[in-house]
C-alpha cells in the first residue's frame, strides 16, 4: 500500500540557504505523527515546503502525497489533493467574511476534484456542527477572516477550516502556541475527531504539552533539518525531561 506521505532524502532551501538537509519521513493513513525539535531546526520549513509556499525550493529528493509528486503541483492543487496546513500564525483577510471564505475554499477544492459544489444550506449546517464542537460563536463567522481574532480564536478558526475541508493529510504547525489550557483542550478535541483510518496527521510542536491531548503513534526528533530520532509516544515524555540540548550538539 502506498504511504500517505512519503518524504525521501528531501533537501530544500530559502534564499540560497539550505534548511532541510536530507529529510526522510513516512506517514501512513490512520497514523498520527509528532515532530518535535528545538527552535530553528526547520520544523516550520518542512510544513511550508510540503504546502508549496513561495520562496521555498526543493533542491533534491522527493515528497509524495498518496504517490503524487508534490513538487509538480501548485499550492492550490496540493490543497485540493488533500493537504491541509494549520498555520502557526493564521493570516488576516480584511473585508472577506469568514463564511464567504469557507464557501470559496470548499467549492474551489470540490471544483478541482470534479465534484459538485456544496449548497449554502449544507455548508451552513456543517459549519454549525463543527462550531459547536469547537465552542465557537457563529457570530465570529460573519467577521472578516481572522481580523481582530484573539490567538485562541484564530486557532479555533484554523481547526474549523480543517474539519470542514476534511483533508487527507493534516499538518499542524505549532498549533499549541498562544493557546491557554481550555482552548488547547477544545482544539485537541477537534483534531481527535479527525483521527480516522483514511487520514494522516502530522503535529509539529516544540512542547510535549499538546501531546497530552493528541496522543501520537510515532514521535520524531528533528534537528538541523532532518529527523535524528524516532520512537513511540514515550519519546515525547523523555524529551520533556532531558530537553533538546543533546540533539543540538549531535547535529552540530
Amino acid at each position: 500500500m502506498t504511504a500517505l506521505l512519503e518524504i525521501r532524502n528531501l533537501k530544500a532551501e530559502i534564499a540560497g540557504k539550505q534548511i532541510l538537509n536530507g529529510y526522510d519521513l513516512t506517514v501512513k493513513a490512520g497514523e498520527v505523527h509528532a515532530i518535535m525539535g528545538p527552535n530553528g531546526s526547520g520544523k516550520s520549513t518542512l510544513s511550508y515546503v510540503l504546502s508549496g509556499r513561495p520562496g521555498y525550493t526543493i533542491t533534491e529528493g522527493q515528497a509524495l502525497l498518496a504517490g503524487a509528486d508534490l513538487s509538480q503541483m501548485s499550492v492550490d492543487e496540493r490543497a485540493a489533493a488533500g493537504l491541509f496546513l494549520a498555520f502557526q500564525y493564521p493570516l488576516e483577510v480584511p473585508g472577506v467574511a469568514t463564511m464567504t471564505f469557507l464557501r470559496a475554499a470548499v467549492n474551489a477544492q470540490r471544483k478541482k476534484r470534479g465534484e459538485e459544489e456544496m449548497s449554502s444550506p449544507d455548508l451552513i449546517k456543517s459549519v454549525k456542527e463543527i462550531a459547536k464542537i469547537l465552542d465557537m460563536d457563529m457570530e465570529m463567522l460573519r467577521r472578516p477572516v481572522n481580523v481582530g481574532f484573539s490567538g485562541g480564536e484564530k486557532k479555533r478558526a484554523e481547526t474549523l477550516q480543517m474539519m470542514l475541508l476534511q483533508p487527507k493529510l493534516c499538518i499542524l504547525d505549532e498549533t499549541d502556541s498562544g493557546l491557554d489550557i481550555d482552548a488547547l483542550k477544545v482544539v485537541s478535541n477537534g483534531v481527535n475527531q479527525l483521527r480516522s483510518k483514511d487520514r494522516g496527521i502530522v503535529v509539529i510542536t516544540h512542547y510535549q504539552r499538546l501531546l497530552d491531548y493528541i496522543t501520537p503513534d510515532v514521535v520524531h526528533v528533528q534537528s538541523a533539518g532532518r529527523i535524528v530520532r524516532t520512537g513511540g509516544k514515550e519519546l515525547a515524555l523523555e524529551l520533556e525531561e532531558t530537553g533538546y540540548a543533546s540533539y543540538q550538539s549531535e547535529a552540530a
Binding site: S51, R53, P54, S74, V75, D76, R78, A79, A80, F84, L85, F87, P90, L91, E92, V93, P94, G95, V96, F101, A104, A105, V106, A108, Q109, K112, P144, Q161, L165
Partner: peptide
Amino acid sequence: DVLFYCMQRGLSQEDATALVVNGF
C-alpha cells in the same frame, strides 16, 4: 502571505487575488 494562505485552502491564484481585492 495572504495569497499563499488563501491558496493553501484551495483557491487558485486568480481567485485568491480576486478575493483579496474584493475584500479590499
